[in-house]
Design a binder for these strands. Structure first.
Length: 411
RNA sequence: CGGGGCGUGGUGUAACGGCUAACAUGCCUCUUUUGGGAAGAGGUGACUCCGGGUUCGAAUCCCGGCGCCCCGACCA
């Protein structure tokens, strides 16, 4: 993409009402736009990165047998009354509205209820199990206080997968597969080193649930990390019983701030019982389906990456989620030879399958470099009269700062 | 929901109750520039969040509303 055609532009300063690093950098670099507190729009660069995060998650969900669907955000009151979760005293962050005819509807904050009801149309025999479905959906949560940029919004993107199994044993096997997929996802997203599988409260159907917590000072959660075992315990459940269960000593744990980027938990038969989601086993006996749910917020993940991977100059995207692979910067002034060489190189790289942001603007070199650092594309290639003297370009790695001179032929 | 802070050109800031609301940046034009946000000249752009009130006079003081940020509580 030619940068001269990119409609967004960078800013020197962040708006004063943004304090969170992720929002400051993402707004300055033109990735997102704040509509109101807790609601951010995604602009071309931001959407490219968000879509890459989504695609990685999609691939891993597919790899464990997940089938992608898309449920509605508009929710019927009756469905939610089935579990009692329509009540504001039970769920305090509903966005509710009504139809022209006066019927009450809600904007979904999660999808257990409608999906369980939906699956009744499709599951009635042990032959229909197991099943797992997932979606990428905009979730609405009327948080009393939005904060931390895109780490905690009122409207945000969420991947939620739900599993349906015949019994606790097969559920548990799937749960472990999903857990392993989550580990792979955070590795691929560039957060593997700082993300810990964390023991958290399990609710009524399991002793524990598991959160995937990424260490950063911007985090809202406090966790206790066991470095050697690469696990952690959420402060909420830290007690002697948990330590015994995990076979760890309190003295081995280090307190850290972290962001919850993923969460998996067993639902047991809570929802299948409520909706009558049962199946007939081989002997014709009716049994409730055992469920689990597995969430990751791609927009929150993007904010977390921005918190973890950045320096004074700007963002530093991991290769896997960068909006472009290469930032090609041409310093041509009025030098048609350089311009021509840059255009040729741009075409060549594109042909080789590289995603290239080509800075063809006529602005000063300093401005191009500053913008490049701010936007944070992993590899920068500079082509100028100087580099062309020996048919080369200069490459620079955004993360390490390492500079190399490379022959154009070898690119 | 408790506590605190703040609303002034697109952005960041300034202005004692008193001149035409200032500066920087951005944007436009011209000239000179081009390896780390270049220089000069000229221009553009604000009912000072909204509504009341006090006053000869309000960006400034008072009341109400709306919005934003932070701390805490909350967070399937």
């Amino acid at each position: 993409m030619k940068q001269s055609t990119l409609f967004t532009r960078t800013r020197r300063e962040a708006p004063k009402d943004e304090v969170a690093k992720n929002a400051q950098l993402l707004i300055r670099a033109g990735f997102i736009h704040k509509e109101m507190a807790g609601a951010y729009s995604f602009l071309p660069l931001g959407l490219r990165t968000l879509n890459k995060i989504v695609q990685i998650i999609r691939e891993e969900m597919n790899s464990i047998g997940g089938q992608e669907i898309h449920l509605t955000a508009l929710q019927e009151k009756k469905i939610w009354e089935t579990t009692g979760r329509w009540d504001d005293a039970v769920v305090d962050n509903w966005f509710k509205t009504e139809l022209k005819n006066g019927s009450k509807v809600g904007l979904a904050f999660t999808h257990e209820e409608p999906l369980t009801a939906l699956m009744k149309d499709h599951i009635s025999s042990y032959k229909n199990l197991p099943a797992s479905v997932y979606q990428f959906q905009t979730k609405f949560r009327n948080e009393e206080r939005a904060k931390s940029g895109i780490l905690r919004g009122r409207e945000f993107l969420m991947k939620d997968l739900y599993s349906f199994n015949a019994d606790e044993k097969t559920h548990q096997e799937f749960y472990e597969k999903a857990s392993a997929a989550y580990v792979r996802i955070f590795d691929r997203l560039g957060l593997g080193a700082q993300t810990y599988k964390t023991f958290a409260s399990g609710g009524s159907f399991a002793k524990y649930s598991h959160e995937f917590q990424t260490l950063t000072e911007a985090g809202e959660d406090t966790i206790y990390v066991h470095e050697a075992k690469k696990i952690a315990v959420n402060k909420e459940v830290l007690n002697d019983e948990v330590l015994t269960d995990l076979g760890i000593a309190r003295s081995d744990l280090v307190e850290k701030k972290a962001v919850e980027v993923g969460n998996i938990f067993s639902l047991g038969t809570r929802f299948s019982d409520a909706f009558g989601l049962n199946y007939k086993d081989e002997e014709g006996k009716s049994k409730p389906v055992v469920m689990g749910s597995y969430g990751i917020g791609p927009s929150r993940v993007m904010g977390t990456i921005a918190e973890v991977w950045a320096d004074e100059a700007g963002l530093i995207w991991p290769e896997s989620v960068a909006p472009f692979n290469i930032h090609l910067i041409a310093l041509f002034d009025k030098d048609e030879k350089v311009k021509k060489a840059a255009e040729d190189l741009y075409a060549k790289l594109a042909k080789a399958g590289k995603e290239v942001l080509y800075d063809d603007r006529s602005v000063s070199a300093g401005e191009k470099f500053s913008d490049s650092d701010l936007i944070g594309i992993p590899k920068r290639i500079v082509i100028s009269a100087k580099t062309l003297e020996n048919s080369s370009v200069e490459t620079k790695d955004r993360a390490t700062g390492k500079v190399e001179v490379v022959k154009i032929m070898e690119l």
